[in-house]
């Protein structure tokens, strides 16, 4: 999953890119941006993500992008999840990406604020995410937005 730091440097134009819902025309840009950051081209994956989170149930699923269709600067994806183990529905952020040369300027924070605003409109009172324990950069980003440890602990086991 694409997750990266969000504090971004100033843009060459000096203008903040518009944050808006993704359209089909943005998918190529998302694929390219993810490839720039991860070194992996996952066209089918991002096509599927757009179909699931950008084209359906748009009152509960949010695929937001920053920038113009031909040149995206970042994106964020989240949804309202009914959630497990008796928890009331909450917002769930599972992807955020910002073009590396634009980092340390606050675009990630704007994307996060935008998706949180949509969660509020959808009627949920909490937003959650999950980060890799050794990914200090993205962990620090979510902390800097005010996120703290929640009431759940992720557990896993080997199946071999």
């Amino acid at each position: 999953m694409a997750r990266r730091s969000t504090t971004l440097p100033p843009q060459a134009s000096g203008e903040d890119p518009t944050i808006r819902p993704a359209t089909l025309a943005d998918v190529a840009g998302v694929i390219g941006l993810d490839e720039e950051v991860t070194g992996l081209r996952k066209a089918a994956y991002w096509q599927d993500m757009f179909e699931r989170f950008g084209a359906r149930r748009r009152d509960q699923r949010f695929f937001l992008v920053a920038g113009a269709p031909g040149h995206l600067d970042g994106f964020i994806i989240g949804e309202v999840r009914a959630w497990e183990f008796g928890s009331p529905p909450s917002g769930w952020v599972f992807a955020v990406q910002v073009r590396p040369r634009l980092r340390v300027r606050g675009l990630g924070a704007r994307l996060f604020a935008a998706v949180c605003a949509r969660f509020r409109t959808a009627g949920v009172a909490r937003v959650r995410t999950m980060v890799a324990r050794d990914n200090a950069v993205i962990h620090a980003f979510f902390r800097s937005q005010g996120m703290m440890a929640g009431p759940f602990i992720e557990l896993e086991m080997r199946l071999d």
């Binding site: 324990r133 050794d134 200090a136 962990h139 620090a140 902390r143 800097s144 440890a149």
Partner: peptide
């Protein structure tokens, strides 16, 4: 460690 490293 992860918590303390994540809070600037």
């Amino acid at each position: 460690g992860a918590t303390l490293r994540s809070i600037s």
